[in-house]
Design a protein around this nucleic acid. Sequence first.
DNA 1: CTGTTAGCGCTTTCAT
DNA 2: ATGAAAGCGCTAACAG
Lengths: 340, 340
Amino acid sequence: MMSKLTLKSVAKTLGVSTATISNAFNRPDQLSVALREKILQACKELGYFGPNKAAQSLRKGSSGIVAVILSDSLEYMVSDPVASQFLQGVARELERNQAHLLLFSGSSPSLEPISDFVDGFICYGAPRNLTLIEQLQQSRKRVLTVDFDLPGRPSVNIDNEQAAFDSAISVLRAGDTVAVLGLRLIDSNQSQAVGDAPMWDNLSSIAHRRLDGYQRAMQQQNLTLSADYIWHIPESSQHYARVAAKAVLAMTPRPTVLLCMSDLIGLSAMREALQLGLRIPEDIRVVGFDGIEETLRYHPTLTSVWQFSDKKGEAAVRAFLNPDDTTLQLPYELRIGESS
Amino acid sequence: MMSKLTLKSVAKTLGVSTATISNAFNRPDQLSVALREKILQACKELGYFGPNKAAQSLRKGSSGIVAVILSDSLEYMVSDPVASQFLQGVARELERNQAHLLLFSGSSPSLEPISDFVDGFICYGAPRNLTLIEQLQQSRKRVLTVDFDLPGRPSVNIDNEQAAFDSAISVLRAGDTVAVLGLRLIDSNQSQAVGDAPMWDNLSSIAHRRLDGYQRAMQQQNLTLSADYIWHIPESSQHYARVAAKAVLAMTPRPTVLLCMSDLIGLSAMREALQLGLRIPEDIRVVGFDGIEETLRYHPTLTSVWQFSDKKGEAAVRAFLNPDDTTLQLPYELRIGESS
DNA sequence: CTGTTAGCGCTTTCAT
DNA sequence: ATGAAAGCGCTAACAG
């Protein structure tokens, strides 16, 4: 059993100083090519693969690890196609930059246990646990937010208000009855009409920006939207979406347009509508949000705002790694499908 | 701007020694309750939240971070429902144990950049990059494998051979023509008949164990399986599965049974069969593997081996954290659906 | 170009 | 119950 290989021990067996070994690995310009080669070769033979990264990180103050804080538990995130796509982009770009990914749940009690190991945080959506937000604000490390804002921190976003407006305006007609199937609009974990429940506008949530956009479009068309026709859905899943869709489709008058804040919701809504024997788009038009593959395989295809979440992930990493603290507004694209 | 808070600086301002602060946080029994309370309170007021974890990790040699090595890129993994489910289980159990998750791609060039930061590795499937396997074998850290084996390391598995046997035996009848839609059987990144291509049995891959099980079942039924009817599919995705399914369904004689090494493949196969106007199970029976939700929503529902990947993830974490190096054999369950 | 040295922030004997 | 001091493994400033 060979003993532990450290920079020091290797230096001793090779008969050079520790600095020389360190330089051989980190600063090639500090020693002759010949010596460097010799040292590197010798190290390989010894089985020493370079300075211990943990010690290096303590000394240099950076580790090459980036934490991605999800808004919710990993559990939910990994099963959401939009979040997955975002993560794919993040992973790809991180890899390209030789950085590594520490996935962290936004419902964790504290950032503490990982904060000292990472170079900073990319936050995808406002973390469910508000303590984390405070910690992020106070952190001395780099913080970049996606799909929400933190004062003084760079962020990556799309223009949710305008995108929602565009999607709504493309479908609305005079005389329409409109229902909104919204995501996380109030503080409740059931699907329910917003009614007079207090809106839950924490940190300029994207849901409220989208609602603003829908409302602006309706105003422009002289349509009105009562709070009974705005539904809150606690998370973008089959189940909750279905409950809301069923309820909304049973209302009188029945909506002629469904504005859905995610494609998963849009798909569920279409499923319910078809089940009721409604024709899309003749009887009811449906619009989604996000742009996920599944909407293309479904029939009818769903009109939606495509926001290219994988690109968003890549952009987030680039912005994170990039020193200048500019906040990025990413492009989106309205794609008209058969549903409207 | 307040200066950096360290154990040392805090000790000085509180007028006690560094050891006392350290003990207050880590070893309550080493000082009076009163003093401890006082110190903790004072620290909170100062904004010192405890010893720096990176330094702590350097000193103690453990960080509370566990690397999960995926067999392939994050990209692919995150979009595979079976892997996602596994990760959900891992995340859940890790959280329960206050440990954290570093996600690492099995196609990375080296473990080096993260190895010094983590307490060990949970490997989900054999990493695509074989260098990693070597590094894992040599690592001094804890290594646990899932769905494959590394000599001398604990592992978590199901009995793939027996499970495959059970699923096959449940469906086979005298006179059947059988095709296998297999996963990663040979070294190719196209869907193709195995034919006489050399099998690619790296590290007792689960695919080959499953094939063994299928073959044992066929033998027992006096059926034979020619290499033309065994198809290799490079990854469990719509696309590749579809290509293989189409090809197999076009063969003469046409198979009466399709043994599929994943549910995603099984679903694709059923889709193709239905499209050709075949009746399931009258004209052709289909069996999958894994157990994913989607098979329950599909019509007909798919007969499959349920292996409860989320439980597997939890078990993996528990086994990893647990000192005794036992290798775990998890239960599975054959669930008969309408497809057989 | 090479070696010495003082930390990075912490834990842990060993004295007191 | 508390404090002094020796590292954990490394880097960077400095001197040679």
